[in-house]
């Protein structure tokens, strides 16, 4: 166990490849994300981001290669590997007729907490994410921003060491988005986060490193500044466009 705690990388992808019939969605993805790092995975629609997240989080089996979370193989030890992660899917996935606190406690129990501990954890997370005032409200009555916040809370309740955030601010207004950024910033350093998003300002504001995918391949990796320097672009948007249309895989 001590060995796992001191492991340098939380997420490792080793030659991950996924085929859907004749179509190759992701090709030979090699990636290492350090403990506590916030890594943003970018790419235009269909670039392979969601498929990559699904393979890394154990939602789909790779055609080839292997994903490891804290050293546990998603192929050989899926239950152990899955116990490390929390996921907030692209759509707001909450139980609509359950209250905020019931949703949180439910997820805690799914990950093994007894009823008493689950209730305590639910109250703690609700306080941490500013959900205490709506704790007894049914999820379906919340605004889009609050539902998304609850969705992230449900991913955090099991105290995961790794968090997958698939387009967490999609469709939110600017205020709700900034509030969620504050929540994510509060997690940085404590939790390893893999984030996908289409909002480049979100990447600039939050991420430690960025990976850019194009046509199923990882074409660039580095900090925002490194990617701008690499492409000679004046801003990150220009750098992204240059790299997102490049299909040359990084060495």
């Amino acid at each position: 166990m001590a060995e796992r705690e001191t492991m340098e990388y939380s997420i490792q992808a080793k030659g991950l490849t996924k085929d859907y019939g004749a179509k190759r969605a992701v090709e030979n993805l090699n990636l290492e994300i350090a403990n506590g790092e916030l890594f943003a995975l970018l790419g235009i629609n269909g670039a392979g981001k969601t498929t990559s997240i699904k393979m890394l989080s154990g939602l789909t089996q790779p055609t080839a290669g292997e994903a490891q979370l804290l050293g546990d193989s998603m192929t050989n030890e899926p239950a152990r590997a899955k116990a490390h992660n929390g996921i907030s899917p692209q759509e707001t996935a909450v139980a609509r007729n359950l209250t905020v606190l019931e949703n949180l406690a439910f997820m805690a129990r799914i990950y093994g907490a007894n009823a008493q501990t689950a209730d305590k954890k639910a109250n703690d997370i609700a306080a941490q994410l500013g959900l205490r005032e709506v704790g007894k409200a049914k999820a379906k009555t919340l605004s889009g921003g609050m539902q998304r916040r609850l969705s992230i809370g449900m991913a955090l309740i099991s105290e995961p060491k790794i968090l997958f955030l698939d387009e967490p601010t999609l469709g939110l207004d600017v205020i709700a988005r900034r509030e969620l950024w504050a929540v994510v910033r509060g997690l940085k350093g404590r939790v390893t986060i893999l984030l996908t998003t289409h909002y480049l300002e979100e990447v600039e504001a939050l991420s430690d490193r960025v990976g850019i995918m194009a046509r199923g391949k990882l074409t660039a990796i580095g900090t925002v500044q490194e990617l701008m320097t690499k492409t000679g672009a004046k801003n990150f948007e220009d750098a992204f466009i240059a790299l997102a249309t490049d299909t040359e895989e990084i060495a």
Partner: peptide, 17 residues
Amino acid sequence: SKDRTTSFLMRLFASPM
């Protein structure tokens, strides 16, 4: 069917259930 279409089940599939 609602659990499937709203990604609620997807969230659970990523858990050790």
